[in-house]
Design a protein around this nucleic acid. Sequence first.
RNA 1: GUGGGUGUAGCUCAGUUGGAUAGAGCACCAGGUUGUGGCCCUGGGGGUCGUGGGUUCGAGCCCCAUCAUCCACCCCA
Length: 426
Amino acid sequence: MVIAPRGTKDLLPGEVEKWQFIEWVARDICETYGFKEIRTPIFEYTELFLRGIGDATDIVQKEMYTFDDRGGRSITLRPEGTAAVVRAYIEHHLDAQPQPVKLYCLGPMFRYDRPQAGRFRQFHQMDFETFGSHDPAVDAEIISCTWDYLTSLGLTGLHIELNSVGCPDCRPGFTTALKEYFRPRLDSLCGNCQVRLEQNPLRLLDCKVPQCRELGAGAPAITDHLCEACSAHFEKVQQYLRLLEIPFHLNPGLVRGLDYYTHTAFEVTVEGLGAQSSVAGGGRYNNLVEDCGGPPVPGIGAAIGLERVLLALEHQQIELPIPSAGLVFVATTEALSDPLEGAALTLLMELRRSGYAAEKDYAGRSLKAQMKQAGRLGARWCVIIGPEELDGHKVLLRDMSQGTQVSVPRQELLELLGRMQNGEAE
RNA sequence: GUGGGUGUAGCUCAGUUGGAUAGAGCACCAGGUUGUGGCCCUGGGGGUCGUGGGUUCGAGCCCCAUCAUCCACCCCA
């Protein structure tokens, strides 16, 4: 038997409603913040991610779904959203529009990781990006949007970690200082960090091995090495966040896994998610557009992991306000009798064309079984038609939650339903 | 890529030191009123015990391999 590929899953009815809801809230918040939706392809030329994400990153080195298409071009399923949005921004000359340009994007991403709690090979993110502004208020806005989304769903136990990773002017000085600090202590580092020292020294600060942590505590902090511009920008971001009453913790060790970040980097974690506790993350990327072949336009963005949002909601036992359909079930006393079947079908059609969710039995079930089915489907009303009703041009309208029913003239059914819908009838 | 746990009906699991037709609850189907659901009762369908080898008189139980899945490392959403 063929099953869904590893790290992917089917979203069945019952689960999908939750997705629809959190996606609806996501769109709503984004629109409120002035972001416009953009939809980019799910696959891109591999080169885009090599240049955009950075070929030294784990994503590029071991997590991409890459293959050659029939034309021999290397294609990659998008592992994150920003690179494609940046590409579209450049390709469609959005820099010619009034800046800033604010875009959001919702959809699946793909990474060839080993699945575990909160980690999948196909997962879903909401991304939002602002192009064309250096204003630290925009940084605060991105973080604020992330925060509003997560809290508006009712999540608690959220922590924002904030850092500045500097810019090309000041970061080299810092990494040099880091290397100088760690090099004499190389033997005390874990194997991973010994490699990191040369490849990506910033990551040393993020290591979870206790020994490395101890050493890291005495290491130089990036905040002490920021250039004047970075430092001022970082101060402003914090100032605005305080103004907006958005709680955050400074974490000089926060380094994100994508190479393109400059200045602001942040991550939101939520309690109770297991090892993969981060639900959202983002930062500024002032050189990415240019690095991808576009004009020198600054940008900043964030991504929210929707699977993790749902996991957190579930863990915190938060009930989402998902509306029920108000289904009308049409039942007949003799399922296979022709006149009844016809009456049921026309009524069903009439109900649907009037905007009611309506259903009937197609399995030739007894009335009893049809009622049971109606109950299972969560029907709010059941319309019952039998020979008596047919002769008298009437139907029985049963309120499934009350267990009461009335006989009404066939012609008045829709009107009565309409009044009951509005709570005007008893 | 590395490590650990788990794999018995659609779902959640039980199955004793290996022993005779593999069980329960839920779900599903049908009855318990002659035209009626949600509770209750009765009956029914459904399993090559992940797969392939091996040990044994005999394996769901033991051994090996393999696959899947979960959790963790790593990394990130």
